[in-house]
Every structure is written in structure tokens, then in C-alpha cells.
């Protein structure tokens, strides 16, 4: 049996609008193996969450998958109907979202929400499920569990709410966890606990994790491989040391340069000039070309792609062919 848990091929996500079709995810291919953490980074609005939502079958209409395929441990899941997908979510794929309130119902005590989810996915009885709920809350670092299990979501801090969501996602011991900014609202010590928890799950249970985060420090310490997205496309994919230390794509280089340092003092942070194009105004050729110092005629004509079959590399003409001049017709 292959150890590929998630296999995404040529995924496209579109939003039909009055003014035409917006492509939020444009031909993305990714694989995550058992026990592997794939980090996803990239400009705000690049399509990271949309990719995650497509995998979870949670795209909100009119958003829809318009191409490609998604397989979970060999089973095709992008063609399943809502009911079948709902069964897969929670049981086989756990989700942790950027906004903890998407996963928590403000009207119910967190303990009851955990117990309900656990009972939905296991055959534990009510009191066993409550014990398990407490264990999970402890596992994600909630203090004084006995006192807090009956509190409502709004009674917890932002970071604690997120930890409860993580506990919810772990209830059914899923094969794949899609974690969208799970540590964004957390301070470093809790962040370290959460990432250590994710790493432990990978190691001990073989869970595959897709970890979307802006925090390169977290990526450097947690992910095995990294995928960098820009304007709905993959800019670069590679082993974490390579992408962080020896970025190949000019966008990745700019991204790495703009991180405030713990060692150096600068008055101004390095910036990539300009901003990512709107989805309805993606320039022809390489989407990064208006902001790229190296852009040449070829970049403004042909879309660079990460060469198929090879799961690593950079979608950049300069990197792939050594030149940005006219070149052969792609």
C-alpha cells in the first residue's frame, strides 16, 4: 500500500461572479505522506484556505472545484456528495480553522461540544466520552480542565478557544489534519505546545498534516516540506531547509527577506514592492512578473509551472531555464 495520504492533482477552484469567473486556485498539485507535515505559505489571498476548503469539501457556493482530483488514501473524495463528505470530515479528516468560532458553537458549553463530537465518531458512552474530552483538553494545554469544561466559548481567551478547536479535530483520530493558521493567535509557548502536539501525532499515529501558517519560524521548526503559493498558483515546493535557506523563486526570496529578525536591527523591514494582483487581473505569464526584479519577455508571455512528476521545484523561468528572454513557445 502506498503511504500517500493526500494526493491533489491539478486542482482548480473557481468563483463565478457577475463580471466573469475568478480562479482562486489554479492547477495545484500536492502530495502528503503518512506522518508528514506539509507547510503552506504565501501571500494573503493566495488561495491557501481555498485549497484547504476544497480538500475538506467545504467550499461555499458559488465557489466550486472546476478541475483536477483529490484522493484520500487512494479514495477519490472531490466527487463525493455533501453527506458522504460530511462523514469523511471529522472521521478521516480533521479541520482546524483560522477562526475558532467557525468550529465552536457559542451557545453550547465546550465540554458538551467535545462529548457530542466524540460520540459521533466513536462508540464511547457519555461518561467515557466526557473523560476522553477532558484528556483531550489537557493534551492541548487547557488549565484546570475540571473547572473549565463547562464554560462557554466566549469565556476563553482567543488562544484557548483555538486549542479547544484542536481538541475537537483530534476527537476521531483522523488520517489527515488540515490546519489553517492553527497557531496564529497563540503566543510562542502555547504555539510550541501545539506544534509539538501536531508533530507527535504525525510521529505516533502517522497522521498527515497540511499546516497553513504565516509564521516561517513555525514552518522551519515543524514542517517537513513547504509549498509556497502566489495568486492561486504554486510558486515553489521543496524540503523545508531548501525553501527557507535557499529559496529558488524570487517571491520566496522576497518573503524570507521581509521577516523581522531577532538579531539585526533595521529601521524599515524589507518589502516586496506592490501587492498581489486581484484574481480578476492576473497578468499574463508569471503572476509575479509585475513585482519581480528579474522579469523578462518570457515571464510576461508564458505561465511557468512546477515541472510535472517532480514534486519539488520553482515555477520560475529564470530558475528553470536560466533565462527570461523569449525562449521556446511553452
Amino acid at each position: 500500500m502506498s503511504d500517500i495520504v493526500l494526493d491533489v492533482q491539478g486542482l482548480r477552484v473557481e468563483f463565478p461572479t457577475r463580471k466573469g469567473i475568478l480562479t482562486a486556485v489554479d492547477d495545484i498539485s500536492l502530495q502528503i505522506r503518512r506522518g508528514e507535515i506539509l507547510g503552506m505559505v504565501g501571500e494573503s489571498g493566495a488561495g491557501k484556505s481555498m485549497t484547504g476548503m476544497a480538500i475538506l469539501g467545504l467550499l461555499e457556493p458559488p465557489g466550486r472545484i472546476s478541475g483536477g482530483s483529490i484522493h484520500l488514501s487512494g479514495d477519490r473524495i472531490d466527487t463525493l456528495d455533501d453527506r458522504a463528505m460530511q462523514a469523511i470530515r471529522g472521521r478521516r479528516i480533521g479541520a482546524i480553522f483560522q477562526d475558532p468560532l467557525t468550529s465552536l458553537n457559542p451557545l453550547f458549553r465546550v465540554g458538551d461540544q467535545l462529548v457530542e463530537t466524540i460520540r459521533l465518531h466513536t462508540d464511547l458512552d457519555k461518561s467515557q466520552a466526557r473523560t476522553r474530552a477532558k484528556d483531550l483538553m489537557r493534551e492541548v494545554g487547557i488549565p484546570a480542565v475540571e473547572e473549565r469544561i463547562d464554560n462557554y466559548p466566549h469565556q476563553f481567551s482567543g488562544g484557548m478557544r483555538q486549542r479547544i478547536v484542536i481538541a475537537l479535530a483530534l476527537c476521531a483520530e483522523p488520517e489527515l489534519i488540515v490546519a489553517d493558521e492553527p497557531t496564529t493567535a497563540l503566543d510562542v509557548s502555547i504555539q510550541a505546545q501545539i506544534t509539538a502536539l501536531l508533530k507527535r501525532l504525525c510521529r505516533e499515529r502517522g497522521t498527515a498534516v497540511m499546516l497553513v501558517t504565516h509564521d516561517m519560524g513555525v514552518i522551519a521548526e515543524t514542517a517537513d516540506r513547504v509549498a509556497v503559493m502566489y495568486a492561486g498558483r504554486l510558486a515553489e515546493v521543496g524540503a523545508v531547509e531548501d525553501v527557507v535557506r535557499r529559496p529558488k523563486h524570487p517571491y520566496t526570496t522576497g518573503l524570507m527577506g521581509s521577516i523581522p529578525s531577532l538579531r539585526k536591527d533595521v529601521e524599515e523591514l524589507q518589502m516586496i514592492p506592490g501587492s498581489m494582483p486581484r484574481l480578476n487581473a492576473i497578468p499574463p505569464g508569471c503572476a509575479f512578473n509585475p513585482r519581480c526584479d528579474h522579469a523578462g519577455p518570457r515571464c510576461r508571455r508564458d505561465v511557468p509551472r512546477i515541472t510535472e512528476g517532480d514534486a519539488t521545484g520553482a515555477a520560475c523561468w529564470l530558475e528553470q531555464t536560466g533565462t527570461v528572454e523569449e525562449g521556446a513557445i511553452a
Binding site: 473549565r148 510562542v188 509557548s189 522551519a220 521548526e221 515543524t222 524570507m256
Partner: peptide, 28 residues
């Protein structure tokens, strides 16, 4: 402890062990 726990891009500690101890409750 806090300064030691910052994920450091320039010198990542991949086998970092998180800060020990349970976070105490502000209730008690």
C-alpha cells in the same frame, strides 16, 4: 523561558521540547 521558546528561523530547533508545566488557571 519565553525568549528561549521563540521559533528561530536562523537556527531552528526541530526537536524543541515545549515549555514544561501546565499553564495555571486564573480562577485559582
Amino acid at each position: 523561558l519565553l525568549l528561549d521558546t521563540i521559533p528561530d528561523l536562523d537556527a531552528p530547533k526541530r526537536d524543541r521540547s515545549p515549555m514544561g508545566g501546565e499553564v495555571p488557571s486564573p480562577v485559582s
